[in-house]
């Protein structure tokens, strides 16, 4: 269940709670996951072990089923197989808190939703059309400041640049601190500087809160630098391991046509 924000003092989740509380030495086991649409199989035989404090990157060509896998983990689509979440406190899948940063956050131009409106909508019981709660406002500013986005709080979401939206969504995803952070190609449409900042933030989150992170990415530069574990997906898991192992494999060559080293300029 998501935490709701009543008008009490906000929990300073990352000052009072010890660093390991979000992790609790948990892991996510994905067993034999499959997604079918009618006669077609989109993904099958997916077996993954996601530990906290590790960043797992999922790479693959377009149409390999990466977003489908994310949607299955989110519980948005029906899937075969099972997803188990265990931790020392013996909580179950329902207790799994997921932070999700979608690939596209489509919002119409001129939509009168400010960053505060969107953020508060997820964490506060006070309806955002009514009045701004100072406590919530200050709390949101604090969360946004983790990613240097505090000045965006009163801007309309539709007026933000791609990089600004991603920083805001990241702040939303970690409020409250989740067990699992799911990022679906989060840097599409962001400039080089924005990307560096974003990756640094991800690493900071991973180290500070010991989150388990699953990230779908096309950016091999990033994957080689930041991922602890890489999974090459094409309907099923073709190869898993470190980036060197995966990028050197035959399957990688078959899919991407050439050696990784040719990608770097």
């Amino acid at each position: 269940m998501s935490e709701t924000f009543d008008d009490k003092e906000p929990d300073d989740v990352y000052e009072k709670e010890p660093v390991n509380s979000a992790c609790g030495l948990h892991c996510l086991k994905i067993k034999d996951l499959s997604v079918r649409a009618g006669e077609d199989t989109i993904i099958e035989n997916i077996n993954m072990h996601i530990h906290c404090g590790r960043l797992t990157a999922i790479i693959g060509r377009n149409g390999a089923g990466k977003t489908t896998l994310i949607k299955a983990i989110l519980g948005e689509i029906k899937h075969g197989g099972s997803i188990e979440f265990t931790d020392l406190k013996n909580r179950t899948l329902e207790d799994l808190k997921v932070g999700y940063v979608p690939q596209h956050f489509n919002i119409d131009k001129n939509t009168p939703v400010s960053v505060y409106d969107m953020f508060a909508g997820y964490i506060s019981r006070m309806p955002v059309f009514f009045k701004k709660s100072k406590k919530v406002y200050d709390y949101i500013k604090k969360q946004l400041s983790m990613f240097d986005a505090q000045d965006l709080i009163d801007k309309r979401v539709c007026d933000l640049s791609g990089g600004e939206v991603q920083r805001v969504l990241l702040a939303v995803a970690i409020t409250p601190i989740p067990n699992l952070l799911l990022l679906d190609e989060p840097v599409s449409g962001i400039d080089r500087n924005g990307m560096e900042l974003f990756y640094k933030n991800i690493r900071m989150l991973k180290e500070k809160f010991d989150l388990a992170i699953i990230m779908v990415s096309h950016d091999f530069d990033f994957v080689s630098k930041y991922a602890d574990n890489v999974i090459l997906l094409d309907k099923t898991i073709l190869k898993e391991g470190s980036f060197e192992e995966v990028s050197g494999s035959e399957d990688f060559l078959k899919i991407f046509g050439r050696d990784y080293n040719e990608y770097t300029l």
Binding site: M1, G75, E76, Y100, M118, Y122, L169, A173
Partner: peptide
Amino acid sequence: LNTSLARSKSI
């Protein structure tokens, strides 16, 4: 705003 994001927040 975004249905997937809402679902991830247990809505």
